[in-house]
Simulated scan of single mutants.
Amino acid sequence: MDAGVCSNQHIPKVLDHWRNPEHPCFRERTLWSLQNAFTEALKGNLNLLPTRTEKLHYLLDHHAGVN
């Protein structure tokens, strides 16, 4: 939320997708499954999606040490 990836109203949706992934390949706890939880929760607002996705990539890349 602080990084501008999502609003506070998205946090319960992100947590739900994190805890109960729709696809078996996202059950393992990885950055990929975390990214999927965010992208699933953020679907719907096409005007905000590109900016929020860019911020999510920056945040996860920074955490993973990718420049």
Rank of each mutant, 00 (worst) to 15 (best):
H17R: 12
A41Q: 03
W32L: 04
P24C: 00
E22F: 08
I11S: 07
Q9T: 14
M1S: 03
D2W: 09
L49K: 06
L49S: 08
L34H: 08
P21Y: 13
A37S: 12
G4F: 04
A37L: 10
R52D: 05
G44Y: 08
D61L: 00
E54G: 03
H23V: 15
K13M: 09
A64K: 14
D2E: 12
I11K: 10
N20R: 13
N36Y: 13
L49D: 08
N36Q: 05
K55A: 14
T30R: 15
A37C: 10
L31G: 15
D61H: 11
A37Y: 02
A64H: 11
A37M: 08
Q9L: 11
D16C: 06
L48V: 06
G4Y: 11
K43R: 13
L48C: 06
V5Q: 01
V5C: 02
Q9M: 10
P50Q: 03
S33A: 10
R27I: 01
T30A: 11
N20E: 06
L34S: 03
N36V: 00
L46H: 05
L49Y: 15
L34Y: 13
N36F: 09
L60N: 04
E54Y: 09
M1A: 03
K43Q: 13
R29L: 06
E40T: 02
D2V: 15
R19P: 00
H17M: 04
L34G: 06
A3V: 08
H17V: 00
L48D: 09
L49P: 13
E40W: 07
R19Y: 03
D61K: 06
A64V: 06
L34E: 01
K55W: 10
T53W: 11
G65M: 10
M1Q: 01
N67F: 13
D16Y: 15
P12K: 01
A37I: 11
V5W: 00
T30M: 11
L49E: 10
N20C: 09
P21I: 14
C6H: 07
E22D: 09
T53E: 11
H57M: 05
R52Y: 08
E28R: 09
A3E: 15
A3P: 05
W32Q: 03
L59D: 02
P12M: 00
G44N: 07
L46C: 01
S33V: 02
Q35P: 00
H63Y: 15
N67S: 10
A64I: 04
M1N: 01
E54K: 09
H57F: 09
F38Q: 04
K43N: 07
G65L: 12
R29C: 05
H17Y: 13
L15D: 03
F38D: 02
E54W: 03
L15A: 03
A64M: 08
P50F: 07
H17L: 02
W18S: 02
H57A: 08
G4Q: 06
L42V: 03
L49Q: 09
R19N: 07
N36D: 07
L42H: 02
G44V: 01
P24R: 00
L59T: 01
H62Y: 15
G4D: 05
Y58H: 14
R27T: 05
N67P: 12
V14T: 07
H23R: 14
H57L: 08
W18V: 01
N47Y: 12
P12Q: 00
P50E: 02
D16E: 13
H10Q: 05
L60I: 12
S33Q: 06
G44C: 07
R52C: 14
Y58F: 14
L46W: 04
K43V: 00
L15Y: 12
